[in-house]
Amino acid sequence: MADTLTEPTAPPKRQPDGTRQRLADRDGFLAWIFLVPTVVYIVALVAIPFFMAIAFAFSDVTAGNPSYGWVGLENFYRVFDDAVFWQALGNTFVFTAISMVLIVVLGKVLAMILVADFKGKWLVRFLVLLPWTTPVALSSVTWLWLLHSIYSPIDWVLRNVGLIEDNMYFLGRPGLAMASVIAVHVWRLVPLAAVIMMVGILSIPDDITEASRIDGAGFWRRMFEVTIPLTFPLIAVAALFGAIFTFTDMAVVYVLTGGGPTNSTHVLASWSFVRGIGGGDIGQGAVIALFLFPLLLAAAVLILRAVRKMETI
């Protein structure tokens, strides 16, 4: 890496009068050339579709009839009249809030394991990261089997210990189904949060840890008075990333419960999909999805604040 600095090749000679400035040297020109492709791409495939989504919310566009017709707030009324929408909105919040707390606490524990030095750490790291690196639809299928109504091994253990007579039907009861969805989200996102927090722990200078150790601070004291305050911005980033992934995800709900039993586990994303693609009513789907946006905006502002803070430390 560093040896590129001492590369022996002779640099090209610059014009002695310094008046000729090549394009490759003009910062303003380079800044534009470097940025334009990304900006064009994002405007074309994020900004325009975003405004299209807003436009769809006020339209009668369906999968069968894509011609645009203005219908005003019609779609909003129809969405609000449906109890499933309010259930989905509530679920989105509940799932996100509970998972976020669990993700932060467990992520912190896992982060400390990831940076610790011990025998077999490579294997432990590998196993611990599996939930995050596996495509979420596939791991949800595994959970579907793990929570199966007849063959669940969890049921088998509980039966054999004598705690339950009948099976639990994890995905068949609204309360347990919601808990299952949250459990899968937490299980899947804790490794990501841990990797983010790990970066924070690694960036604490060693002498600070050493100094507090020499001063006699024990494990808990070091954690609460040194590590957590110093890495707080990254903990916040991990929390908000966890929240965003839970908030916008529909794969877990779609694969695990399909929104059931009787629509009790739908979230905004999955309900929007059911309406917009399943039912072909793009207008209604767009209205439901739009409810994701104001909350994400708030999350974005919080993340940016955390990052600002990190840069000034």
Binding site: T38, I42, L45, V46, A47, I48, P49, F50, M52, A53, F56, P66, I244, F247, T248, D249, M250, L268, A269, S272, F273, G276, I277, I282, G285, A286, A289, L290, L292, F293, L296, L297, A299, A300, I303, L304
Partner: peptide, 21 residues
């Protein structure tokens, strides 16, 4: 900052319009 905000516009918001695109 704008680029960061773009990241927060999730697939679940864009999939309907992008399917038309």
């Amino acid at each position: 900052i704008a680029i960061f905000f773009v990241y927060l516009v999730p697939p679940s918001l864009l999939f309907l319009s992008l399917s038309r695109v």
